[in-house]
């Protein structure tokens, strides 16, 4: 790395911090940005600065937005009686792509992990509890991931919200569409059997 001029070294170091980018990829991207037409690199830098300065969090659900309320929270056509709890704003995009949910969301910005010392107060869970008490929704859907930390997060939220909301549900787990039972792990299979539905 010493052979690179300091600004290039800095660029590579910053790129390496991005998820999924290793040292080789960081070098390749840096060289790509600096070779040939540099206007693309300037546009990229401008877009990063603009996003960092303009994008904040929705004060109601903590989704990304450039306004006070995100597009979902400010949409009068959404069903405000149902709140779907997700870990990250990207999970909202995944659910919205299904066109199967018309309620609101709450992003808790991570998941509880006792082993890593991540507790409810480190996430947006206290804000969720306050919101539920204030808005009194009819249903909370827990759409956290299905690993141990995701389950811990759902179990904790369910425990804290019991008595404050009529219905608390957890998204179903099962066999992915198009995959074989042979490759399913035993917990997924057990959950799929438990959650079977009648024809």
């Amino acid at each position: 790395m010493e052979i690179y001029p300091p600004p290039l070294r800095e660029l590579i170091n910053e790129l390496k911090r991005l998820p999924g980018i290793g040292p080789r990829s960081a070098e390749r991207i840096a060289f790509h940005l600096l070779s040939g037409d540099r206007s693309a690199a300037r546009r990229l830098a401008g877009a990063v600065v603009e996003a960092v300065e303009k994008i904040g969090y929705c004060r109601r659900c903590f989704n990304f937005t450039e306004r006070d309320l995100c597009s979902i929270c400010s949409d009068p056509g959404r069903n405000g009686r149902t709140i779907c709890v997700v870990e990250q704003p990207t999970d909202i995009i995944a659910i919205e792509k299904t066109h199967g949910f018309g309620g609101l969301y709450h992003v808790i910005s991570g998941k509880i992990s006792p082993l890593d010392g991540i507790e409810s107060g480190d996430l947006k869970i206290p804000q969720l509890i306050e919101r539920v008490k204030r808005e009194k929704p009819a249903e909370i859907i827990l759409a956290t991931s299905s690993d141990v930390e995701g389950e811990a997060t759902s179990l904790f939220i369910a425990r804290e919200l019991r008595g404050h909301v009529a219905k608390i549900s957890r998204i179903a787990h099962g066999i992915p569409v198009g995959s074989s039972l042979n490759f399913a792990d035993e917990i997924t299979l057990a959950r799929a059997m438990e959650g079977r539905r009648e024809f």
Partner: peptide, 24 residues
């Protein structure tokens, strides 16, 4: 290959925390 999944642990928050304590 899974030998034991301990599904009972992941169904209960206190068990998850207790298992985390042991694992740590």
């Amino acid at each position: 290959d899974t030998i034991g999944s301990y599904g009972g642990i992941r169904d209960d928050l206190d068990r998850i925390v207790a298992a985390s304590y042991i694992a740590e």
